[in-house]
Design a protein around this nucleic acid. Structure first.
Length: 111
DNA sequence: GTGGAGGCATTAA
DNA sequence: ATTAATGCCTCCA
């Protein structure tokens, strides 16, 4: 079947990882991609998240870029939505930026 | 030495 | 060939 794509197989894997992010913490596209087995698939994670089906209930708002900032243009509806959801999770945005040292999730189980 | 901004590189669709 | 929910490197203040 050549109809399927590479991300098609990683799609569920990425969903699992994003859904594995604990509330109050955030991760980056590159980090999630790396955990999924895609060393340079940062954009793939973003693309997959953009193709999320309605009702996926996936905490995509806990995923930001490596800069700790929301990828959407500041002032955009999407940007506002993610920021609101992040604050709802207890994540504080400082200067529209996330303190990675406070909310950065390594993907590890920690202690 | 730290922080912010801009540009180039990389992969998948 | 073009676009994209990015990442990393380099330069300036």
């Amino acid at each position: 079947m050549t109809t399927a794509t590479v991300t098609d197989a990683y799609r569920e894997q990425i969903w699992k990882i994003v859904h594995s992010i604990p509330q109050g913490k955030v991760s980056s596209y590159g980090a999630v991609a790396q955990y999924a087995g895609l060393p340079r698939g940062a954009r793939l994670v973003g693309r997959i998240l953009s193709q999320l089906p309605s009702g996926s209930a996936l905490p995509w708002h806990r995923v930001v870029n490596a800069s700790g900032r929301i990828t959407f243009p500041l002032g955009s509806d999407k940007y506002r939505e993610q920021r609101e959801r992040l604050m709802s999770d207890g994540v504080i945005l400082r200067n529209d930026k996330i303190d990675w040292k406070l909310f950065g999730w390594d993907g590890s189980h920690g202690s």
